[in-house]
């Protein structure tokens, strides 16, 4: 039986203070910037890969705790990602907006972002997508439930935009098959 995000968050989640998480993430991003000599494209890429690897494993936790059933439409998928996924992991519920006409693409608006609390970017860091890891997590997790999606940031309040906005687009639904490397 499928459970609501609120219920999973309240009853079956071990929790930690979000400042600790923010701090840990921040010090790693800072170190990546210095390792890559402020080549922010490389930093974005590294964060994206980290996220992807996390997503692949995070989906198991998600399915085990929520018992979520298969979604039949992208609208349903969006609802589950926002109200259950984000809620149970980051304790936030982003807004969904800007559905494309074919219902395959939508925006996620993050009113709060625990990764970026208290963060200020230096003025030369225009190319850095600080929370790029989220794109990787979503892409990795959704791949594991046979959804091939593109996820990317279009706006970030850290860059002076009015909102933090991610785009999520369904490319195709994959066939159930044995994952690579497990045959």
């Amino acid at each position: 039986m499928s459970r609501s995000g609120e219920e999973v968050w309240k009853n079956s989640t071990e929790k930690i203070n979000s400042e600790l998480f923010t701090l840990t993430y921040g010090s790693v991003v800072a170190q990546l910037c210095s390792d890559y000599n402020n080549n922010y494209n490389l930093v974005n890429k590294q964060l994206d890969s980290m996220g992807y690897n996390i997503g692949i494993r995070l989906i198991e936790e998600f399915l085990a705790k929520t018992g979520a059933a298969r979604c039949h439409t992208m609208k349903e998928t969006a609802e589950i990602i926002l109200k259950v996924g984000f809620k149970m992991f980051l304790n936030i519920t982003p807004q969904v907006d800007n559905w494309s006409l074919d219902n395959r693409q939508f925006s996620l608006i993050l009113n709060e972002n625990p990764l970026a609390d208290f963060v200020e970017l230096p003025s030369d860091a225009k190319d850095l997508w600080y929370s790029q890891i989220l794109c990787g997590v979503l892409r990795g997790a959704l791949h594991m439930v046979q959804l091939d999606v593109s996820v990317w940031f279009v706006k970030d309040v850290l860059k002076g935009d009015d909102i933090t906005e991610l785009k999520l687009k369904l490319n195709k639904i994959l066939k159930d098959e044995v994952p690579a490397g497990e045959d």
Binding site: I16, N17, S18, L20, T24, F89, L90, P114
Partner: peptide, 9 residues
């Protein structure tokens, strides 16, 4: 006051 899932960390 403000929490996230320990699994994230």
């Amino acid at each position: 006051k403000k929490l996230v899932n320990a699994a994230c960390l």
